[in-house]
Design a protein around this nucleic acid. Structure first.
Length: 601
RNA sequence: GGGGCGGUAGCUCAAUUGGUUAGAGCAUCGGACUGUCGAUCCGAAGGUUGCGGGUUCGAUUCCCGUCCGCCUCGCCA
């Protein structure tokens, strides 16, 4: 076969006169008949125009060229020359062309389901997933997967430079309680027992610290059997690391350096120092633990004012346990919100548990115009002052328990920003969210859950307080802050971690507090408790979601675009048709039988 | 498990209040053409309107069910 001397993105004016060989695909052809055919050849480096010209080619070559079609895989040999017809500014190679003297058709194509070239519009996603090899020929997909590659390489180089060791951890491991649902794998050698695929290498990396490896990095595949979303796949990749003899700030600093370096090298963007925000502030001001700081629309607490009204929606909310009334002020919103839009917002917030979202606007006279004006009248001037209201503004009220108000207004805040196109193009708003509560009380199950995970240490300041606290005292337990941290960019959590518990008695107390019996703790985590009793170093770390990182760097909205072979919302791989049934024999070897029965009808 | 949107030619889309033979662009096939670069021009072929049922004289259109895809709530420590 003709082996390439250059790629299809390489040839320039200074190659003119050289004999070259190109390998690639027919991206498009322009057949002028009787001896003049142009073909754009494509590989992952670019496009090059090749030309079959009767002045330079015999009839058999022209006849062969005449049969070429889009997506045929070909090799050509020819001479680089300046284009007769003038340059094509759209192509990097646009000033030259290769006049072909030899053609080798490496493989003809059937009529493809769609063309990866620029022609036509993007096929529906299920077509793209079904014919993924064709979709991945698209330059855009190759661009994204190249960014993914460079991100991985950047991470490996960055952490290698700083003394981190890449160490692999098992894919067949132990099922853990809490957290997400595990994917389980039956053991043939031990009938009736099961491995789980790791949700993350959390415990293994802690054990590696206890083993003295000091600084660990891995790009592990992780598995969580939960429902999919635009940014969630059942198997995904982390940039996972752990460090010994560090405090929180040491981890934040090195990770910030990593993020800054990555954004600089991949996008040429300089990120300013990343601000830190407490969980409480994030929740109260942005209604979210992953605040999007690219725009304003902060939540303002007006509970004290609302209490002075006779509006039952307000007063009723305030009387609730942990009730409050908050407001979002939308500058200049009055002219933009129709009744239809605000009615839509009422429906929107209902899915987050809010009853509705009373609204008002400020008219040119500076008066509040609203269906609830008479209720607001007593607090009008205070409201205007606190919110800094000006003519033309709109305000939206949330009144309910604090959790519901924060959630509903936090989501509404995002929706308004999108609807009003308030999010600046190309902006990068990073922040660390810190000082999470260690635990959250769940009314339904009447127990505490670890907000991060149960290996997260309390803050150094509160460690003694934690060890002393009565685990039945909900208020006392909820006041304990953890050493956890999340890195958020543009309202998306891209990484999270913590300083871990490195003392056995603290770990035992956490298990105790989340309602795990001694027997269960021993069955699930005896190895950890044991390891913690043999001189475990203080340690902490973080895991970044590689997929989400690449989504941001490549500017795509779907996690499926940054994964070569992703799954659909129902967990199918549409190309190879996984998951699928297996032979009875395979099941028998594993002592497995399916209890699933198709529904009748 | 819940809510929403979608499924018509290989691909992307159209088809009036339910109405005669379901159209167009690209791709494919045949033909013309020597400077194109989304080549152009002429012609052809291409359909179980996702599937099943119902309403109707008549269904791509209305109704019910179902499958698939997407967004989302729950879920995701």
């Amino acid at each position: 076969m003709l082996k390439r001397t250059h790629t299809c993105g390489e040839l320039r004016d200074d190659h003119v006169g050289e004999t070259v060989i190109l390998n690639g695909w027919v991206n498009s052809y322009r057949d002028h008949g009787t001896g003049l055919i142009f073909i754009d050849m494509r590989d992952r480096y670019g496009l090059t125009q090749i030309v079959f010209d009767r002045e330079d080619a015999d009839q058999s070559l022209l006849d062969a060229a005449d049969t070429l079609r889009n997506e045929d895989c070909v090799a050509i040999k020819g001479t680089v020359r300046v284009r007769d017809g003038g340059p094509n500014p759209k192509l990097a190679t646009g000033t030259v062309e290769v006049v072909v003297v030899e053609l080798e058709v490496l493989a003809k194509t059937e009529n493809p389901p769609f063309l990866p070239g620029e022609k036509g519009s993007l096929p529906s996603e299920d077509r793209r997933l079904r014919y993924r090899y064709m979709d991945l020929r698209r330059p855009e997909m190759q661009r994204i997967l190249t960014i993914r590659h460079r991100t991985s390489q950047f991470a490996r180089r960055f952490f290698d430079d700083r003394g981190f060791l890449e160490i692999e951890t098992p894919m067949l491991t132990k099922s853990t309680p809490e957290g997400a649902r595990d994917f389980i794998v039956p053991s043939r050698l031990q009938p009736g027992s099961f491995y789980a695929l790791p949700q993350s290498p959390q415990l293994f990396k802690q054990i590696l610290m206890i083993s003295g490896f000091d600084r660990y990095i891995q790009l592990p595949r992780c598995f969580r059997d939960e429902d999919l979303r635009a940014d969630r796949q059942p198997d995904f990749t982390q940039i996972d690391l752990e460090m010994s003899f560090v405090d929180r700030d040491a981890v934040l600093e090195i990770m910030e350096e990593f993020a800054v370096g990555l954004w600089k090298s991949e996008l040429g963007v300089d990120i300013p120092p990343v601000q830190r925000m407490t969980y409480k502030h994030a929740m109260e001001t942005y209604g979210s633990d992953r605040p999007d700081l690219r725009f304003g629309l902060e939540l303002v607490d007006v509970s004290d004012l609302a209490a002075k009204t006779d509006f039952k929606v307000f007063t009723g909310a305030i009387e609730k346990d942990r009730g409050c009334v908050k407001v979002i002020r939308v500058p200049g919103g009055a002219a933009k919100f129709t009744r239809k839009i605000t009615d839509g917002y009422t429906e929107f917030v209902k899915q987050f548990g809010a009853g509705g979202v009373p609204t008002a606007k400020v008219n040119d006279a500076g008066e509040l115009e609203t269906g609830i004006a008479k209720f607001i009248e007593p607090i009008k001037s205070e409201l205007i002052e606190r919110l800094g209201l000006e003519p033309g503004d709109s305000v939206f009220f949330g009144a309910d328990t604090r959790g519901t108000v924060n959630r509903a207004l936090g989501e509404l805040r995002l929706k308004i920003a999108k609807d009003l196109e308030m999010i600046p193009e190309g902006a990068w708003a990073f922040c660390w969210v810190i000082d999470f509560p260690m635990f959250e009380w769940d009314e339904e199950t009447k127990r505490f859950y670890a907000l991060h995970h149960p290996f997260t240490a309390p803050t150094p300041e509160q460690t003694d307080e934690f060890m002393a606290c009565d685990i039945t005292d909900v208020d006392a337990v909820e006041s304990i802050l953890s050493s956890g941290y999340d890195l958020v960019v543009n309202g998306s959590e891209i990484g999270g971690g913590s300083i871990r518990i490195h003392r056995r008695e603290i770990q035992k107390k956490v298990f105790d507090l989340i309602g795990m019996s001694k027997e269960e703790a021993n069955a699930k985590f005896s190895f950890l408790l044991e390891a913690l009793s043999y001189g475990a170093p203080p340690h902490g770390g973080i895991a970044f979601g590689l997929d989400r990182l690449v989504m941001h760097l490549s500017g795509t909205e779907s996690i499926r675009d940054v994964i070569a072979f992703p799954k659909t919302q129902t967990g199918s791989d549409m190309m190879c048709d996984a998951p699928s049934a297996v032979d009875e024999k395979q099941l028998a070897e594993l002592f497995i039988a399916s209890t699933w029965e198709p529904e009748e009808g």
